[in-house]
Design a protein around this nucleic acid. Structure first.
Length: 556
RNA sequence: GUCCCAGUAGCUCAGCAGGAUAGAGCAACAGCCUUCUAAGCUGUGGGUCGCAGGUUCGAAUCCUGCCUGGGACGCCA
């Protein structure tokens, strides 16, 4: 808890005491103290709506209650400078913000750790994200999922959760057979033979590439082998090639995983039958029309779901249940799955499975990432997975750069559609928010460097009374909010809050920069105080950017 | 037909578990570089928060219905 949070707690405690000593409510009746930061500075630093909340309990007019509260408020505590009653019964607090200067030494001391808290109390959370099928290149939707998932993991980690990041590899179903057939076709074609692509084949450029590589490395030695042998080979080769590519692309994109979990391993280690057996013991399984059904309607699903088809093979749901059981067996308190919008219909049956396995429905959280539309030259870029003409993650990385992508993909709340403006993302101007933020960081670095060249050394031990301007106070307040902002973003699973925060902090920095000269050898002590402030802002900006996978450049 | 998400300034979006006169950025307009990077700053204009009801001291926020856009509803994965 930093000094700002400490101050807020003290203030809340004082408000509570005032209500109790004024006899307006009993301890039990007392609602939670809500402290808000008014948008208008004329309304003070903090305000509480306690008087309005108490109106019914105390059976008095809110303004009267507010007056009673203020009479019983001990203003010597909680750094209160002035109190006002306003509007329908708000109590506005004007705080002596001198305490904020204590933030700077804290931030400088904590460095990369600044912003960390223990709100997660070590809760074990597993985040499964991306999990794209190893049958083609990663495209825009995956890029957004990767950006959001990775940012969320960093945020949760910072907020004191114990995070494990996982990628589920769908390497067992029909689609892998199709991959094998597609690779086979491209291989044959690379050898100059006529060979049709399978019905649901994968038309991506990557598969054509595999065919070429195979033809070069192996010549035509596979062309006349028995079908089964060919399929096994192409399957294995294709899978390995695709997986290596996925991992490499994601790593370039600064996204890494703790575990790559193979669906096939569920078969090999015989995890599926026992999972279904367990549900059967609990009475959620029945047979009908030659198939095995999961009675998911017990848990609010629209209809029951088939687990084993008439032909004896599993539906996708079966290994998925086994997989989630496996996750839970590994001792995670909470599972977060990050899925594309096209999978949202799948949530109720998965939730039902979690409950059938004996866990609370809330154990599984599914964050849905809405679609991304790509715009170039003001026009929507059409995408088609079928023809393989989708814009890939790698292409986009090369064209617009990783920083801009990472920033843009988490910039909006995940559950709203995202228009990705290529021209804006590529532009090196202040219109581009990622440059705006990075520029703020680079500007500070330049100042610190120049101070150093002039032989001016700053430290956490500075004269705080020299930081009195409104612009400096704005910066300090913003710095103080960092830890709480991360905690909120973690609890609400809203990584986009981080981009908003660093954008606002950058704006405050630019504003300060234009209003005040930092380095002034004639005012050495003031210069040192400002440099300390700059360093604190720099650390906070860098930490914020780190959370969303954006680089903090020292010069631009 | 059922379900999910969205509808806020000309455009793209915030609005944190109802709170004061609804906020940013872009675009428009007017200013600021002999001074630490103008990739920046300052100011102005711009809104029936899709529509209609309801809940209450108070609703962009919660509830109901409707309209519009997108997506999902397989013994596919």
């Amino acid at each position: 808890m930093n000094v700002m949070q400490q101050m807020q707690e003290n203030l809340k405690e004082e408000i509570k005491n005032a209500v109790l000593t004024a006899g307006l409510a009993t301890e039990e009746e007392l609602p939670e103290v809500i402290l808000e930061q008014p948008k208008d500075k004329a309304h003070g630093d903090y305000a509480t709506n306690m008087a309005m909340q108490l109106a019914r309990i105390a059976k008095k007019a809110p303004r009267q209650i507010a007056e009673d509260m203020v009479d019983h408020l001990d203003q010597s505590k909680g750094s209160i400078e002035k109190v006002e009653i306003a509007g329908p019964g708000f109590i506005n607090f004007f705080i002596d913000n001198q305490y904020l200067t204590k933030l700077i030494p804290t931030i400088m001391e904590q460095g990369k750790e600044y912003g960390a808290s223990n709100i997660g109390k070590g809760e074990k959370i597993q985040v499964e994200f991306v999990s794209a099928n190893p049958t083609g290149d990663l495209h825009l939707g995956h890029a957004r999922g990767a950006s959001v998932g990775d940012a969320l993991c960093h945020i949760l980690d910072k907020a004191g959760y114990n995070v494990s990041r996982e990628y589920y590899i769908n390497d067992a179903g029909n689609q892998i057979h199709n991959l094998a057939l597609s690779v086979q076709a491209r291989y044959m074609q690379a050898l100059g033979k006529e060979f049709p692509m399978p019905e649901d084949g994968y038309h991506g450029a990557d598969i054509i590439e595999i065919g070429k590589v195979l033809a070069e490395e192996h010549g035509d030695k596979w062309a006349d082998k028995p079908e089964a042998e060919q399929h096994a080979f192409f399957r294995e080769y294709g899978l390995k090639y695709e997986l290596d590519k996925l991992a490499k692309d994601l790593e370039s994109f600064r996204v890494t995983f703790d575990h790559w979990f193979s669906e096939t391993s569920l078969y090999e280690e015989d995890k599926i039958v026992p999972a279904i057996e367990l549900l059967k013991e609990k009475g959620y399984i029945y047979e009908e029309e030659g198939a095995t059904w999961f009675r998911s309607t017990e848990f609010d699903d629209d209809k029951d779901r088939v687990l084993v088809k008439q032909d004896g093979s599993y539906t996708y749901l079966s290994p998925d249940i086994a997989y989630h059981k496996n996750k839970l067996d590994r001792g995670f308190d909470t599972l977060i799955n990050i899925w594309g919008a096209d999978h949202h219909g799948y949530i109720p049956r998965m939730r039902a499975a979690i409950q059938a396995l004996g866990y609370d429905a809330e154990t599984l959280e599914v964050e849905i990432i809405q679609m991304v539309n790509l715009f170039e030259n003001g026009e929507k870029v059409k995408m088609s997975k079928r023809t393989g003409k989708a814009v890939t993650l790698r292409e986009l990385m090369e064209e617009v750069g990783i920083d801009a992508m990472r920033y843009f993909f988490v910039m909006r709340s995940a559950d709203s559609h995202l228009d990705f403006d290529m021209d804006l993302a590529k532009s090196e101007s202040s219109d581009n928010p990622v440059y705006y933020v990075q520029y703020a960081h680079a500007r500070i670095c330049t100042m610190l460097k120049q101070a150093q060249e002039k032989g001016i050394n700053y430290s956490a031990d500075y004269d705080a009374s020299l930081l009195q301007s409104d612009k400096a106070e704005d910066l300090l307040k913003k710095l103080g909010e960092f830890t709480q902002m991360i905690a909120d973003a973690a609890e609400n699973r809203t990584p986009h809050r981080v981009t908003q925060y660093i954008f606002d902090l950058a704006a405050s920095l630019h504003s300060f920069y234009n209003a005040e000269k930092v380095i002034n050898p004639d005012q050495l002590e003031e210069t040192k105080a400002k440099l300390a402030l700059m360093e604190a802002v720099r650390i906070t900006l860098a930490n914020g950017m780190d959370l969303i996978g954006v680089r903090a450049p020292e010069s631009m």
